[in-house]
Design a protein around this nucleic acid. Structure first.
Lengths: 276, 276
DNA sequence: TGCTGAAATATTGTCTGAGTTATCTTATGA
DNA sequence: TCATAAGATAACTCAGACAATATTTCAGCA
């Protein structure tokens, strides 16, 4: 016995009605793509349903203005209890993706209400195959903010923070970016630089954005090896920060990010400005 | 009969045990401050509990690393069902404030995991009395991003978008910022400018941030009238965008934001750079 | 006819109480 | 000393009922 799980437009997940199997499929969603590399802990039921719905929304499979099916119908389609489904909807509502109200239903918000910079939303956005134009926009924002952050860090860094950055840089040099340890060092370097800005909002924004870009870069594309050794670029940033040269730090960081952008997009068009 | 609602550290909300009254108080929380001006729709139970807990967390009344009380205990303290309480926790978890896991409990995350730029979190952060240093950080980010956005808008704006900006500017001039219509026009102006950037992430970020700043500015302080007429500054931005002068637009916007910062902080210290 | 207000209805919201699962702790054995 | 298994505790999931809310419909009236 077969049925269509979720989605009023187009059968997306086909599953049997056997409860145990249904739940298994609800958890690790059908379409056996390789698991997103490493998720700290497996998602619970509500989390995985939120994820599925979230991906369906951000990917445009279900469109703003549309209503989700009712709770009873949806929970049956997902083969979970209404409780679990409702908690999933709560998560989506918390991220601005939907808006639930009695007698009306759960409506998908217009994109301007989405918290696009929410880590989960970013994750879901670049989950399957990244939208190149969107990724470009994200790089644009990152360049803007993280470059400025480098400038601030140059002005405000403490000796201890500088020491952290130096250590991370050395780790990057010994292990390369090809290893996990090297990538961790890369992360540490950027985090140390960010915390030197002393601005919690910039830290929150940038760490989220660059994490999203990093996973997209490393695990999705990257068919080719790095075009250029990133260490010298990092060193330039470090030295500018060490010398408290804000302008130089900013330019160096901007270059570094531009490098990452090129590396991500591979041989794709790298045009920076779009003609609207 | 009286009891202490929530909060293991310090009695914060004192309520009776009479169910109906308890629920009433749980909804519009005790301490009858003027309602936050205008909330589109009254919060539901789970929303208001999430709000209370969220405020307790971002304000530092309960500290990262600490565990919330168990579900049964907490839901009893709030005098709501476990369902409602759990949905509240889901909301907080979705915003990165807490992390719930079986056998361990619901732990408050370290601040670096919070989604500080989430609209609700911003709202909660500047809910009671704004932390001036934090507000300053937020202004710093806004300056950085919205100025750059003005520059992009100058390069990319369409004729239609320019027209929208002009209309909003005229509305601002006729009604002043003292009226609701005038403030709406102000909002429209900035939104039109943002959408001209064509970068959804910058739009999402900036609209959230400036909304938070706006409400903080307008409704919390502002004992004094505006020091300076904001219209000329807006006009300068507009004209630079109209003339497609990116640099000039950026500088004009930066000035405009600096004006807002001064106006917000009133006679407070306006030092821009902190010595870390 | 056109407006006002009340009732029907559909949907989410809340409640209860039970059983399940994950994970930490402790005890046990090699 | 380390690995492995048992126990305990928290969140997690379930089912089914009832409540609240907003839309829609329709009756009553000017």
């Amino acid at each position: 016995m077969w049925g269509v799980l979720y989605c009023s437009r187009g059968p997306t997940y086909i599953v049997s009605h056997k409860p145990s199997l249904l739940k298994h499929l609800a958890r690790r969603r059908y379409a056996p793509q390789p698991e997103p590399i490493t998720r700290d802990r497996p998602l619970r039921l509500h989390g995985s349903i939120a994820r599925q719905l979230g991906i369906a929304i951000v990917s445009g499979r279900v469109k703003p203005g549309n209503l989700l099916n009712g709770e009873i119908a949806s929970s049956e389609q997902f083969a979970v209890s209404r409780t679990a489904y409702r908690e999933a909807v709560r998560i989506l509502a918390a991220k601005g993706l939907v808006d639930a109200r009695p007698k009306v239903g759960t409506r998908i918000n217009v994109r301007s209400k989405w918290n696009l910079l929410d880590p989960d939303v970013l994750d879901w956005t670049f989950e399957s195959e990244p939208d190149w134009k969107l990724l470009d926009s994200l790089f644009e924002l990152r360049d803007l903010v993280e470059s400025a952050a480098a400038g601030m860090a140059a002005e405000r860094r403490s000796a201890a923070q500088l020491k952290q950055m130096r250590a991370a840089l050395e780790d990057m040099a010994t292990h390369t970016l090809a290893t996990t340890a090297g990538r961790q060092a890369d992360l540490d370097f950027h985090n140390a630089l960010l915390s030197a800005t002393g601005n919690p909002y910039i830290i929150s924004l940038t760490s989220g954005v660059s994490a999203a870009i990093r996973t997209t870069t490393i695990f999705k594309q990257r068919k080719h090896p790095l075009r250029r050794d990133p260490i010298p670029d990092h060193r330039r940033v470090f030295e500018a920060v060490a010398a408290r040269k804000a302008g130089r730090a900013q330019r160096a960081m901007s270059e570094l990010i531009e490098l990452a952008r090129i590396d991500t997009q591979g041989f794709k068009r790298v045009r920076r400005n779009r003609t609207s």
